[in-house]
Protein backbone atom coordinates (compact mmCIF):
# COMPACT_ATOMS: atom_id res chain seq x y z
CA UNK A 1 0.00 0.00 0.00
CA UNK A 2 1.20 3.49 -0.77
CA UNK A 3 -0.29 5.28 2.17
CA UNK A 4 -0.28 3.60 5.54
CA UNK A 5 -3.57 2.90 7.26
CA UNK A 6 -5.10 5.83 9.00
CA UNK A 7 -5.62 5.02 12.65
CA UNK A 8 -7.50 6.98 15.28
CA UNK A 9 -6.84 6.22 18.95
CA UNK A 10 -9.12 7.03 21.85
CA UNK A 11 -6.78 9.61 23.35
CA UNK A 12 -6.35 11.63 20.17
CA UNK A 13 -10.02 11.27 19.36
CA UNK A 14 -10.96 12.85 22.69
CA UNK A 15 -8.57 15.72 22.09
CA UNK A 16 -9.85 16.29 18.55
CA UNK A 17 -13.47 16.08 19.71
CA UNK A 18 -12.76 18.65 22.43
CA UNK A 19 -11.29 21.08 19.89
CA UNK A 20 -14.33 20.61 17.62
CA UNK A 21 -16.74 21.15 20.55
CA UNK A 22 -15.01 24.34 21.55
CA UNK A 23 -14.83 25.63 17.98
CA UNK A 24 -18.55 25.00 17.62
CA UNK A 25 -19.22 27.02 20.76
CA UNK A 26 -16.75 29.84 20.15
CA UNK A 27 -17.80 30.34 16.54
CA UNK A 28 -21.50 30.21 17.39
CA UNK A 29 -21.79 27.46 14.82
CA UNK A 30 -24.48 24.81 14.41
CA UNK A 31 -22.22 21.94 13.49
CA UNK A 32 -18.49 21.30 13.20
CA UNK A 33 -17.01 18.18 11.71
CA UNK A 34 -13.65 16.84 10.70
CA UNK A 35 -13.18 14.55 7.70
CA UNK A 36 -10.13 12.96 6.15
CA UNK A 37 -9.44 13.59 2.48
CA UNK A 38 -10.81 10.16 1.58
CA UNK A 39 -14.21 11.00 3.00
CA UNK A 40 -14.03 9.27 6.38
CA UNK A 41 -15.64 11.15 9.24
CA UNK A 42 -13.15 11.66 12.09
CA UNK A 43 -15.15 13.69 14.59
CA UNK A 44 -18.20 15.92 14.84
CA UNK A 45 -19.71 18.39 17.27
CA UNK A 46 -22.95 20.35 17.59
CA UNK A 47 -26.43 19.56 16.34
CA UNK A 48 -25.65 16.45 14.33
CA UNK A 49 -28.78 14.47 15.26
CA UNK A 50 -30.74 15.17 12.10
CA UNK A 51 -27.70 15.28 9.90
CA UNK A 52 -26.44 12.50 7.65
CA UNK A 53 -22.80 12.95 8.66
CA UNK A 54 -21.54 10.00 6.59
CA UNK A 55 -22.90 11.52 3.39
CA UNK A 56 -21.69 14.96 4.41
CA UNK A 57 -18.20 13.57 4.94
CA UNK A 58 -18.11 11.83 1.59
CA UNK A 59 -19.44 14.82 -0.34
CA UNK A 60 -17.09 17.22 1.45
CA UNK A 61 -14.13 15.08 0.46
CA UNK A 62 -15.45 14.94 -3.11
CA UNK A 63 -15.83 18.70 -3.09
CA UNK A 64 -12.29 19.26 -1.84
CA UNK A 65 -10.95 16.74 -4.35
CA UNK A 66 -12.77 18.48 -7.22
CA UNK A 67 -11.65 21.98 -6.24
CA UNK A 68 -8.14 20.60 -5.70
CA UNK A 69 -8.25 19.33 -9.27
CA UNK A 70 -9.38 22.78 -10.45
CA UNK A 71 -6.57 24.41 -8.48
CA UNK A 72 -3.95 22.25 -10.17
CA UNK A 73 -5.36 23.12 -13.60
CA UNK A 74 -4.72 26.81 -13.00
CA UNK A 75 -1.35 26.25 -11.36
CA UNK A 76 -2.37 26.48 -7.70
CA UNK A 77 -1.42 23.83 -5.17
CA UNK A 78 -4.89 23.74 -3.62
CA UNK A 79 -7.64 26.04 -2.44
CA UNK A 80 -7.31 25.83 1.30
CA UNK A 81 -10.61 27.54 2.14
CA UNK A 82 -14.03 27.11 0.53
CA UNK A 83 -17.14 29.00 1.50
CA UNK A 84 -20.67 28.12 0.43
CA UNK A 85 -23.38 30.63 1.21
CA UNK A 86 -26.97 29.47 1.47
CA UNK A 87 -30.25 31.21 2.22
CA UNK A 88 -30.17 30.08 5.84
CA UNK A 89 -27.07 27.99 6.49
CA UNK A 90 -23.55 28.46 5.30
CA UNK A 91 -20.62 26.09 4.97
CA UNK A 92 -17.05 26.99 5.75
CA UNK A 93 -14.61 24.32 4.60
CA UNK A 94 -10.87 24.47 5.22
CA UNK A 95 -7.93 22.12 4.88
CA UNK A 96 -5.97 21.45 8.05
CA UNK A 97 -2.34 20.38 7.87
CA UNK A 98 -2.78 19.48 4.20
CA UNK A 99 -4.59 16.24 5.01
CA UNK A 100 -7.88 16.66 6.86
CA UNK A 101 -10.88 18.85 6.20
CA UNK A 102 -12.59 20.99 8.81
CA UNK A 103 -16.21 21.87 8.09
CA UNK A 104 -18.24 24.47 9.98
CA UNK A 105 -21.96 24.90 9.38
CA UNK A 106 -23.34 28.19 10.66
CA UNK A 107 -26.30 30.53 10.22
CA UNK A 108 -27.07 34.22 10.82
CA UNK A 109 -26.28 33.91 14.53
CA UNK A 110 -22.63 33.84 13.53
CA UNK A 111 -20.63 35.51 10.79
CA UNK A 112 -18.01 34.51 8.26
CA UNK A 113 -15.46 36.72 10.02
CA UNK A 114 -15.98 35.08 13.38
CA UNK A 115 -15.90 31.59 11.89
CA UNK A 116 -12.68 32.30 10.01
CA UNK A 117 -11.05 33.65 13.14
CA UNK A 118 -12.01 30.70 15.31
CA UNK A 119 -11.20 28.18 12.60
CA UNK A 120 -7.70 29.58 12.37
CA UNK A 121 -7.04 28.97 16.02
CA UNK A 122 -8.62 25.51 16.05
CA UNK A 123 -6.65 24.53 12.93
CA UNK A 124 -3.37 25.10 14.72
CA UNK A 125 -4.44 22.89 17.60
CA UNK A 126 -5.79 20.16 15.33
CA UNK A 127 -2.59 20.19 13.31
CA UNK A 128 -0.54 19.52 16.44
CA UNK A 129 -2.79 16.61 17.47
CA UNK A 130 -2.68 15.11 13.97
CA UNK A 131 1.08 15.38 13.95
CA UNK A 132 1.26 13.47 17.22
CA UNK A 133 -1.15 10.90 15.81
CA UNK A 134 1.01 10.40 12.72
CA UNK A 135 4.05 9.78 14.92
CA UNK A 136 2.09 7.21 16.88
CA UNK A 137 0.85 5.40 13.76
CA UNK A 138 4.35 5.18 12.35
CA UNK A 139 5.69 3.69 15.54
CA UNK A 140 6.46 0.06 14.59
CA UNK A 141 5.35 -1.07 18.04
CA UNK A 142 1.81 0.14 17.33
CA UNK A 143 0.74 -3.05 15.51
CA UNK A 144 -2.58 -3.64 13.79
CA UNK A 145 -5.55 -5.17 15.60
CA UNK A 146 -6.21 -7.08 12.42
CA UNK A 147 -2.95 -8.93 12.22
CA UNK A 148 -4.55 -11.71 14.24
CA UNK A 149 -7.88 -12.10 12.51
CA UNK A 150 -8.33 -15.45 10.82
CA UNK A 151 -9.84 -16.39 7.49
CA UNK A 152 -12.60 -17.90 9.58
CA UNK A 153 -13.38 -14.52 11.16
CA UNK A 154 -13.69 -13.07 7.69
CA UNK A 155 -15.84 -15.96 6.45
CA UNK A 156 -18.15 -15.62 9.45
CA UNK A 157 -18.94 -12.09 8.37
CA UNK A 158 -20.53 -13.42 5.20
CA UNK A 159 -22.52 -16.29 6.62
CA UNK A 160 -26.04 -15.17 6.10
Amino acid sequence: MVTPQFVMYEEEYQRIAAVCERLCRDANANVVFLVDKNGQLLASAGQTDNLDTTSLASLTAGNIAATGGLAKLIGEKEFSILFHEGERDNLHISIVGGRVILVVIFDSRSSLGLVRLRVKRASGELEAILEALTQKIQDPAAGSPFAEITDEDIDNLFND
Partner: peptide, 15 residues
Protein backbone atom coordinates in the same frame (compact mmCIF):
# COMPACT_ATOMS: atom_id res chain seq x y z
CA UNK B 1 -6.37 3.47 2.67
CA UNK B 2 -8.39 1.84 5.37
CA UNK B 3 -9.24 3.80 8.47
CA UNK B 4 -9.16 2.09 11.85
CA UNK B 5 -10.96 4.02 14.56
CA UNK B 6 -10.22 2.69 18.04
CA UNK B 7 -12.48 5.26 19.57
CA UNK B 8 -15.67 4.18 17.81
CA UNK B 9 -14.26 0.66 17.24
CA UNK B 10 -14.81 0.85 13.52
CA UNK B 11 -12.86 -0.11 10.51
CA UNK B 12 -13.65 1.74 7.28
CA UNK B 13 -12.66 0.62 3.80
CA UNK B 14 -13.20 2.12 0.36
CA UNK B 15 -14.25 0.04 -2.63
Amino acid sequence: MSFINYSSREINCKI
